[in-house]
């Protein structure tokens, strides 16, 4: 690495760390009542309108849920309490976020499991490829090539 490149990477690193630090400090957690209510509504599906959330829907029941959420947030209930309340009232399937317990938790864990397995397979393939390099040609390979060549 040339000296110029080294300085280049150093400045990239500095700007990167500085930007991330500022991104974290600027970040506002949903603190106000309106912002909290907005988040909860965005994660609550309208029970009668095919996959839209209650923010998006014009249906009367969506409007009713919006009002309920506003009231519950005003009463200073936690997000979990509000989601649980809405699930009791309208069914678990109004919660767009699948629960992390019971059978539903599988939807969270299966992809992680699959990813770990796939990485394992990839690593073992790399090892096989590396150890397989320089392997001698077998009679079987020659046979295959002969056959392919003879094919019209």
């Amino acid at each position: 690495m040339s000296r110029l490149q080294r300085y280049g990477w150093l400045s990239v690193l500095v700007v990167f760390v500085a930007s991330l630090a500022m991104a974290i400090t600027n970040d506002d957690v949903p603190a106000t009542i309106a912002e909290r209510a907005y988040e909860i509504k965005a994660d609550t599906l309208c029970p009668v309108c095919d996959g839209q959330n209650v923010l998006e829907s014009n249906a009367p029941v969506a409007a009713a849920i919006r009002r309920q959420v506003d009231e519950l947030v005003e009463e200073d209930r936690t997000d979990e309490e509000i989601h649980a309340y809405l699930a009791r009232q309208y069914g678990q399937d109004v919660n767009a976020k699948p629960p992390g317990t019971g059978i539903s938790s599988l939807v969270w864990s299966i992809p992680v499991l699959v990813a770990v397995l796939a990485v394992g397979v990839l690593i073992s393939s790399f090892k096989k490829w590396r150890s397989g390099r320089g392997k001698l040609v077998t009679e079987e390979d020659r046979e295959l090539v002969r056959k392919l060549r003879d094919e019209p």
Binding site: G51, V94, N95, A96, K97, P99, G102, I103, S104, I110
Partner: peptide, 27 residues
């Protein structure tokens, strides 16, 4: 895989346990 699982998971859960859940944007 994640998109496919999230899409059909509510159907699978309903078939197995008769529970109704939704898998939406937060997931």
């Amino acid at each position: 895989f994640v998109v496919l699982l999230g899409t059909i998971f509510p159907l699978l859960v309903e078939a197995v346990s008769n529970e109704q859940i939704a898998v939406g944007r937060p997931y």
